[in-house]
Write a protein that binds this DNA or RNA. Structure first.
Lengths: 120, 120
DNA sequence: CTGTATCCGAGCGGATACTG
DNA sequence: CAGTATCCGCTCGGATACAG
């Protein structure tokens, strides 16, 4: 993880400015993997979801994965987790303002993906 | 690989339109992994590079990986491979028109990545 | 309901040696 | 120069059982 772009200093002609693409790997870490995009997509549409609701929506995800990915998204500042001291416990996940800024980016990725219509 | 978005039909209130985000996974397959973005970035700047040149630019990549990723990018239609029947052999890789359409998308991802400035 | 703990198989990607 | 062949460790993610 944490792919890095070497700040190369090869003596290659026409030295590139690859360093400027560094942040792509940060972005890909935020949305990479099997589930994060889906979780975010559901949160774009629901603005508040509980653990169980997400589990149901994301058909097939294990609790282990859901828990892990929510934790990552939270520590990345994309979502917030609010725990209500009830019995049984209730926990709600929402996008942060910052999380919402990801939406147009994902949509442009999605638009580009549509254009591929490859046989894959 | 080939993450899929189940065309769910849960009876969840306010059914989402997640299906519309399907193509993101196609896009992520095209640019995912440790090296593809870097290869593309160099091709954005050089418009023609040989195997050895790419290997030198992508410091640390093994020939195995470079070969594999170039093959994938070619079969995805993002780059072309031209072999010159010389001794020693010469092979040049270029972006296709379609490959170039990826540039603005990567740039928007990159811009978003910059905004994170997390401690990761 | 909302998680954590453990185990495990599959695949990505690195290292090295070899070939046309 | 431009790859292919082999081997191998590591991480991702699935399955299942258990806990607060």
């Amino acid at each position: 993880m944490a792919y890095s772009v070497k700040t190369s200093s090869t003596n290659f002609q026409n030295k590139t400015h690859l360093k400027e693409f560094c942040s792509i790997f940060k972005a890909l870490d935020f949305i990479g993997g099997r589930w994060k995009v889906n979780i975010l997509a559901y949160l774009f549409e629901h603005d508040s979801l509980r653990f169980k609701e997400l589990k149901r929506l994301l058909e097939g995800i294990s609790e282990r994965m859901l828990s892990a990915k929510l934790k990552e998204l939270e520590s990345d500042g994309l979502i917030t987790k609010e725990t209500f001291p009830e019995v049984p416990p209730r926990v709600e996940y929402k996008l942060t303002e910052f999380g919402r800024t990801l939406r147009p980016v994902l949509e442009s990725l999605n638009e580009w993906g549509k254009a591929t219509n490859s046989s894959k």
